[in-house]
Design a protein around this nucleic acid. Structure first.
Length: 126
DNA sequence: GCTATGACAAGGA
DNA sequence: CTCCTTGCCATAG
């Protein structure tokens, strides 16, 4: 069990129903600003473990980009719709409308220092 | 330790 | 908007 994996899973599990986050956003909040691609990989091997809502993570262009045969795009689309999120036929999602914007208090619980939390806030709350 | 592989992202054409 | 290039970095072999 790597620290990285645990961290990513922890963040993904804290995404509330009805909200989505991008791979880069999850990586950023987890404390790995440039680990977007690794998030996809972690979800590929660990997605589905202990109730991890892997389907709430999409790319920053608002599209579903899974290629995993265990977790196909159609499955992800259905899971998102069950969360109340509108997904177009071409797998497009209005990410800015549904984007998860964790509060300062929520971020502090993740043991991130104040300066770093400010960076996250300024990036997604403009 | 070194190379190859990406469920990615951002910027240029 | 689409297509392409470059930068990224944890894992697997």
């Amino acid at each position: 069990m790597s620290k990285f994996k645990d961290r990513i899973i922890q963040i993904v599990r804290s995404i509330p129903e009805g909200k989505v986050a991008s791979y880069g956003q999850v990586a950023l909040i987890a404390g790995y600003p440039r680990g977007a691609q690794q998030v996809g990989w972690i979800l590929h091997i660990a997605g589905g473990e202990n109730g991890t809502p892997w389907w709430r993570v999409i790319n920053n262009q608002g599209k579903i980009s899974t290629k995993c045969i265990e977790h196909t795009p159609s499955i992800q689309k259905r899971m998102l719709e069950e969360d109340g999120i509108i997904v177009a036929k071409n797998l497009d999602i209005d990410i800015e409308k549904y984007r998860w914007r964790p509060s300062i208090k929520e971020l502090k619980k993740l043991k991130l220092d104040d300066e770093y939390i400010y960076v996250i806030e300024s990036k997604y709350n403009h």
